[in-house]
Design a binder for these strands. Structure first.
Lengths: 340, 340
DNA sequence: CGTCCAAGGTATAGCGCTAAACCTAGCATG
DNA sequence: CATGCTAGGTTTAGCGCTATACCTTGGACG
């Protein structure tokens, strides 16, 4: 079916290696005339090199893995966040004639398996828990270029890219304290865990302490990052903690659900309760009032991850140091002074 | 570095082929005792088969491509839509020990190149224009299993999965006509093209004709699928066509922008103008008033695409026939009777 | 005039795996 | 007792490519 190097070589009357050299742009060893003749035949016959054969013979696959957690039977956790990275990464890789392989990871061993099985040149790990990254040993990784996004591991085998989650929480909480709030609740998923949400939780607690406000564990709730969970939480909060005048949440969608839940319980935002979201998602400006939130530099994060990956693939070794991007408070309509 | 079949064979004192048979679960030719011994060694040594070697030797890569249009230098066009498919596809493929390769396509030739270079067993084409699919010849495709989503090509080489776009437009437009509207505008991207949007445009025109309403080309506008474009369109519409009392749009995000644009021009929804969106996106319920829209069966579409792909990979040949999924009108708050 | 060298190639030996054909002992069968 | 068959393997011949070492010319140079 397919045209191979051998076919081209036969037609051009040269050895197979000469064709290989031409196709791979190794200028040195071929005369211009021969090169042109071969290229013409390659075009004519529609020759496409076999990536598997190359990968096998050259011990390099020109393949980068995109590894995403996949919880059991459920789908991949690709949020708008992630999509941006995927898009940028694919484009940059394509420019350099690399390819992207998407792989959900449900057991730890699958990371190593993915790296080795396809002989990946690099891999981007999206949103894994620190512990997962920590457990990666040099033997697991081999020489694969690893970039971990949104992980707080300190594994020197992976270059890390994240935004300043602690700082974002500090910004949000200080904003609320500055407006005069004292009973400030926190809502986010699994914050007792390590990782991104934990950092935001610590930022929140730090600012409370900084202002002499006692941390009340009853005001920190584990809430999933969905509209429905936010809504339920809003009702609950209104019923159980009417003294709360502000909430810092770790996701916009949760915040929007929360606002609806509060409204359902007769509490208005920002009149009765102030709310700050996180991520500055697209939806943040479509709701009324528009959501006050923390913006991450998403394109920046994606660009940085891509840059690190490209540099490592190109062989530029850089210190395994974490890159942390700045965040910003976007003041819109959901945070105001507490009711007097 | 890596452990190979040869290493395992040497350690187990059997031939390489026996190990290969065990690893690939070919029960027939190996005794239970030998099989267990080999499996133990495989586990101990952490053997991972080389996918490139397999692909080369077996002429099958267990690799499925996800081909997405990539316009020039820009990123991939992965909308929430697409993400659902990606997630489901990855999960199903992983269960069957296939892998997913993500590839942006910016020139037509790249489709063939992608199929051939990695020796793909199958490919899902997401959101390509019909013309692109039409141009695919048997030689381009080889034996690759092709599933095209949201294409209206009739190329027998690709199984097609789409939802009933014409029917959706009919539902939306009839709803508006039924409410008493006569000056109904249409807004969507590139509807003069072929494809999904064209189908919706035809649905709209058909219903107008059906009710004896003359089609006015000035009321059909080419508007990009973004909030900003919708907003600009809203202002323009209010200024240039104050007689319009209803708009059917091909995307929710466009509809939401449109509503804001109308509001900015002093026209309220649904009091002055009714609006129907398309897709029943998540945001549709977060805006006020909640958006009346057409819902596609997204999970169904994804599931169907996956099912077709799986069947074809498993060798079940089915007639190359298009699957079309039903749509539904979701009545919410943005469509009402025209002002009297 | 012998030597060196560069330019422009070719020949050889795999990479790690699988498909397909082949082998061999041991047993049942007519 | 020859024959066939089966279980349980082994051997051989690549898949399409690249790395590496090697081979020829025809000058330039001392």
């Amino acid at each position: 079916m397919g045209v191979t190097l051998k076919d081209i070589a036969a037609e051009a009357g040269v050895s197979l290696m000469t064709v290989s050299n031409v196709v791979n742009g190794k200028q040195a060893r071929v005369s211009a005339a021969t090169r042109e003749r071969i290229m013409r035949i390659v075009k004519e016959r529609g020759y496409v090199p076999s990536a598997s054969a190359r990968s096998l013979a050259a011990r390099s696959s020109r393949l980068v893995g995109l590894l995403v957690p996949a919880v059991g039977e459920s789908s991949l956790t690709i949020d708008p966040h992630t999509v941006e990275v995927v898009g940028m990464l694919e484009r940059e890789l394509r420019r350099l004639d690399y390819h992207l392989m998407l792989r959900g990871i449900s057991r730890h061993g699958e990371i190593t398996e993915a790296l080795r099985s396809w002989n990946l040149d690099g891999a981007v790990l999206l949103g894994f828990n620190d512990i997962v990254i920590d457990r990666l040993s040099a033997a697991d990784v081999g020489g694969v270029a690893l970039v971990a996004m949104d992980s707080y591991s300190e594994n020197p085998l992976a270059l890390e890219v994240r935004s300043d989650d602690f700082g974002g929480a500090v910004l949000a909480t200080r904003h609320l304290v500055g407006l005069g709030h004292e009973r400030i609740a926190f809502a986010g998923p699994a914050f007792s865990d390590t990782g991104v949400v934990r950092q935001r939780f610590e930022g929140y607690r730090t600012v409370l302490a900084e202002h002499g406000i006692a941390f009340d564990p009853a005001l920190a709730s584990e809430v999933e990052t969905t509209h429905a969970a936010g809504l339920a939480y809003g009702r609950r909060l209104a019923a159980e903690h009417p003294e709360v005048t502000a909430v810092f949440t770790t996701a916009d969608i949760l915040a929007i659900g929360l606002i609806e839940g509060l409204a359902a319980a007769g509490r208005s935002v920002p009149g009765d309760v102030s709310v700050v979201g996180y991520d500055n998602a697209e939806i943040a400006v479509y709701v009324t009032p528009k959501l006050t939130t923390i913006a991450q530099d998403l394109p920046g994060k994606a660009a940085e991850a891509v840059r690190l990956m490209m540099d490592r693939l190109a062989g530029k070794d850089r210190p395994a140091q974490a890159v942390s991007l700045d965040v910003a408070l976007i003041e819109r309509g959901t945070a105001g002074p507490p009711p007097s």
